[in-house]
């Protein structure tokens, strides 16, 4: 059994990732359900999925209620994060393993927010909820209760993994790389929103100048929800989109959820040292007066 810390599993280590220990398999999770050093956390788009059945002993982090400030468009502050972690029985030493629906789209988003607060002991269960259920592994409707901890209020450091509007402007001026992970129709400006999704209010369509379009889902195998191998990811992001591991990269989508998935793939699976997620994304850029746009 691999430890809860930094030892990669053979099934994942063989895929050639830069930091394979950032992913765990469903089997690893099954072996660590009772591990007090590990907290399994489900994060979904569908608000009913967790209650309808989750990995036994898993907690829930809801992306709207738990991760966002209820008034200001921003993430929770230091005190709220400490309260969330404490409520979930998490300490700074706990290894938090996120999983969820949509090929871990929301799980990566939650992991990204946790890292803003410096909680680096965080991993993704490869394949997410889809793989766990396809394998016929047990599910539970019992909501677990965790002994409350006293997580010390951390300082949120946005500089490392998050790009704000002014950062993107400076990044553009410096010729930095941009990855637009939305659909080709959104990228081209043909649509202002995802296919089949309603318009979320951007006044202009198109993309940030120089951004390359790599829809987020290209990083996963649709059948299993698992991330593709490092070679396959390099083919997509380097041969296809012209990125290089030494590039300073900003990824964006419409509110930063899909791009957190790409941020995870570039930063941990391909080992890019400087990758940030622009969560303002198109809902901000497409409404900014005077912001440069390409179609």
């Amino acid at each position: 059994m691999a430890s809860a810390t930094n030892e990669a599993e053979p099934a994942i280590a063989g895929r050639g990732y830069a930091l394979p220990e950032m992913l765990v398999t469903t089997r690893w999770v099954a072996d660590h359900l009772d591990d007090p050093a590990v907290r399994i956390v489900e994060s979904d788009e569908d608000p009913l999925l967790y209650a309808a059945g989750h990995i036994p002993g898993a907690a829930e982090v809801d992306w709207t209620r738990d991760l966002n400030d209820p008034v200001v468009r921003d993430y929770l502050d230091s005190g709220r994060f400490a309260d969330l972690a404490s409520r979930l029985g998490i300490t700074p030493e706990t290894t938090v393993v996120f999983y969820g629906d949509k090929s871990n789209w929301w799980a990566c988003y939650a992991l990204w927010v946790f890292r803003l607060f410096g909680h680096t002991r965080a991993k993704i269960m490869d394949g997410g909820r889809l793989k766990w259920t396809k394998e016929g592994r047990p599910m539970s409707r019992e909501t677990p209760a965790f002994p409350r901890t006293d997580y010390p209020a951390p300082v949120r450091d946005d500089a490392r993994d998050r790009a704000l509007r002014d950062d993107v402007v400076a990044h553009l001026d410096a010729g930095g790389a941009l990855i637009d992970v939305r659909s080709p129709e959104e990228y081209s400006g043909e649509r202002l929103h995802m296919p089949d999704y309603p318009n979320e209010g951007a006044l202009r369509g198109g993309h940030i100048p120089t951004a390359k379009n790599v829809p987020w889902a290209r990083a996963v195998n649709a059948d299993t929800g698992e991330f593709k191998s490092a070679d396959a990811l390099r083919e997509i992001y380097e041969s296809g989109a012209g990125l290089s591991p030494t590039d300073d990269v900003i990824a964006y989508c419409r509110i930063g959820e899909r791009s957190s998935h790409t941020w995870f793939a570039l930063k941990f699976l391909l080992g890019y040292e400087r990758v940030r997620n622009y969560d303002g994304s198109w809902t901000e850029w497409g409404n900014l007066v005077g912001a440069p746009i390409e179609k």
Partner: peptide
């Protein structure tokens, strides 16, 4: 029925 905390995609469906 579902509350206001629905994502764009879930609402549309």
């Amino acid at each position: 029925l579902f509350g206001r905390e629905l994502s764009m995609g879930k609402t549309a469906g």
